[in-house]
Amino acid sequence: MEHSLFSKPKELFIDVVNPRDYIQIDSVSHMYQNLKASVQKPLKMILLYGRPGTGKSMLLHKLHHDLSKHQKVFMIDIPIIDENDFLRVLAQKIYGYVNREAITLTTFLELASAVNYPQTPIVLLDEAQLYSTALMEKIRLISDARALKFVITLHKTDDEDIIAKEHFQTRIWESIELQNASPEELKIYIQKKLLKSNCFDVANMINDKNIKIISRLTKGNYRDANKLMFSLFSLYAWFEEHHPSKINYNSLKPKYIEMAAIHTGLIHA
């Protein structure tokens, strides 16, 4: 399996968020530039929202990666739901204030004014839909006091429109919506991912018709595309080991794409 042509491509599509794997896609890059510019503006809080798997966490990680070279940035990718813990962790990570006890908002703001940063430190909160209304209110007060700047991500589902919730409705939010990829964007995403890791042979196998099928099955969702490509290359690795004659190295077989889609649950069969 080590020498399989498909084992590396397979690993490329494991669903993890690593800023080094970030792929430049025109529309996303444009959004990312907007995001970076917004971060430098005073006062406003930034809201990144979109359906699951549209790349919000990826963009947040990328932002963290890029900003941390120049300024104080702290990222909470796993939400800290408890209000006391939240303030305590922030005080420790940003101001180096270590305390076992819970701290009040007033203490926190005093701390903030005591420590002087050349630029307002930035806090990145992933999965903000999990924070309580009370905690969101505190976050807003901290932001109003210009103590910290927040960028948060929210995921929007059909069942619940969190953006409609009251605490995200205030004018201080600058919101950016992320969307599923178009077929062209999906093609760029898959091709670039493969080429970045020198998987030229496999990249050459993917033609526009294949992309069309993949795009139709995943609706351009990055996470679904990852899952589909992962099981597709697993399938190819299996055939390479057991029935190499069945592999056509000129293009991906629609049948195998559909089989992978059945395996990942994108097709109910």
Binding site: S234, L235, W238, M259, I262, H263, I267, A269
Partner: peptide, 18 residues
């Protein structure tokens, strides 16, 4: 982890259905 023969059967069923 990938059961290819069963996957192929399911695929055939799906094709016929579609």
């Amino acid at each position: 982890m990938l059961n290819i023969p069963s996957l192929e059967r399911r695929w055939l069923k799906y094709k016929i259905k579609s």
